[in-house]
Simulated scan of single mutants.
Amino acid sequence: MTTADPFDAGRYDPNDPDPWLALYLDHSLPIDPQAKRALLLGARSWSRRWLFPVSRPVVFLFFGLVKILRAISPRHPNLNGLLHKSIHWGLRTFGSPECNTLILRHFHIGTELIAFIKANAGIDPALVKTVPLRPLTLKSLEDNVFLQHDLNIFNFIIELNLALRQAGKEITPPDRIDFSMLTDIDPAFEAFPTGWANKIDIQTAVEFYTPLYALMLPRSDFMRASHSLQLDEIVGIYIGRILGTDYHMHFVKNGHPLVTLSTLQAGFRLMMHGLDCEAMHGWLRLLKHRQAMGLPLDPRDPTGGPELG
């Protein structure tokens, strides 16, 4: 039996417009169409509409108990290996294909955003050491991928700024912007499970795993992970200095980390972090395409900007 496409514009009824169809057709954010589809399928799913709100009070209470435990014992337990194994098991057992796609995509996007800034910041990229993360299977998440993702972004910011200070430089638009590291993020992901239990959307999965993350990692690791979710604005500013335009900053809504938010909001901010990264990556891919066509880099600037060559 073939299921009707929920985003089929032919099903549009002006007397009963579908809010998810409106968001699917909207192009205000330059995110990948398949990523948007996966996100919206999760947003309109049974788990997001029912399981997510019903379970939140229980998750919040559990999170509060974890915070008390971590206040008493900030370093133990340290179950990083078990955490990554449990994430793999949970996603394979309960995660929807759309949920699993978005999670694996995120590591590829983070790797490419960092590589873009390193290549265009005006310093030797070798001075900024990060570990590229390009998982293709859920099993590969067990290889410390989540923790390494957090380490990457903080080490990137520290080492980038140390290199800039030592060189007496600021990030400025280069003569020619290098977009070569940016791809359409369409790798050969494994065929994700589609069993009867694989119905959990990404936001519900994130909400459940956030307190487990806090429970199984030392407090310093969890705090670092939580604060990393607010680094989108810093990354966006770096990209703006390279591009010579701040238009993409309209996509960034996660708040500057100099004013830190409560770790109790980490689940929601993780979703916003994913959306911010998808939008910035999509915008850079659009500019890469314009560069390849010999068009002005900024669609609003007919005179050009940094050399497109």
Rank of each mutant, 00 (worst) to 15 (best):
R75I: 10
R75G: 09
N78D: 14
L79P: 04
L79R: 02
N80I: 10
G81H: 00
L82Y: 08
L82T: 12
L82K: 02
L83N: 03
H84F: 10
H84K: 12
K85Y: 13
K85E: 14
K85N: 14
S86K: 12
S86F: 09
S86L: 15
H88D: 14
W89F: 15
L91M: 15
L91E: 12
R92S: 15
T93V: 12
F94P: 02
F94T: 06
S96E: 03
S96I: 00
S96R: 06
E98Y: 10
N100I: 01
T101F: 11
T101L: 13
L102M: 05
L102D: 03
L102R: 05
H106I: 03
F107M: 05
F107N: 06
F107S: 04
F107K: 04
H108R: 03
H108A: 08
H108F: 12
I109G: 04
G110F: 09
G110Y: 02
T111S: 11
L113V: 03
I114M: 10
A115F: 00
A115L: 00
A115E: 11
I117V: 15
K118F: 07
A119M: 04
N120D: 07
N120Q: 09
N120K: 05
G122F: 01
P125A: 02
P125K: 03
A126C: 11
L127G: 00
V128S: 09
K129E: 09
K129H: 09
V131G: 06
V131L: 14
L133G: 02
R134W: 04
P135H: 06
P135F: 12
P135M: 10
L136P: 01
T137F: 07
L138M: 09
K139D: 15
S140A: 15
S140Y: 00
L141V: 09
L141F: 06
L141T: 07
E142D: 08
E142W: 02
D143N: 14
N144H: 01
V145P: 04
V145G: 09
V145T: 11
V145Y: 04
F146R: 15
F146Q: 11
L147E: 00
Q148Y: 04
H149C: 08
H149F: 05
D150I: 14
L151P: 06
L151E: 06
L151V: 14
L151R: 15
N152S: 10
I153E: 00
I153A: 00
F154T: 05
F154E: 01
F154P: 04
N155W: 01
N155I: 05
I158V: 14
E159W: 06
E159N: 02
E159A: 01
E159R: 01
L160D: 03
L160G: 05
N161M: 10
L162P: 06
A163D: 09
A163H: 02
A163E: 08
A163M: 08
R165G: 05
R165I: 08
R165D: 15
Q166E: 15
A167N: 13
A167P: 11
A167V: 05
G168I: 07
G168S: 08
K169A: 04
K169Q: 12
E170K: 13
I171S: 06
I171E: 11
T172M: 10
T172S: 13
P173R: 06
P174S: 03
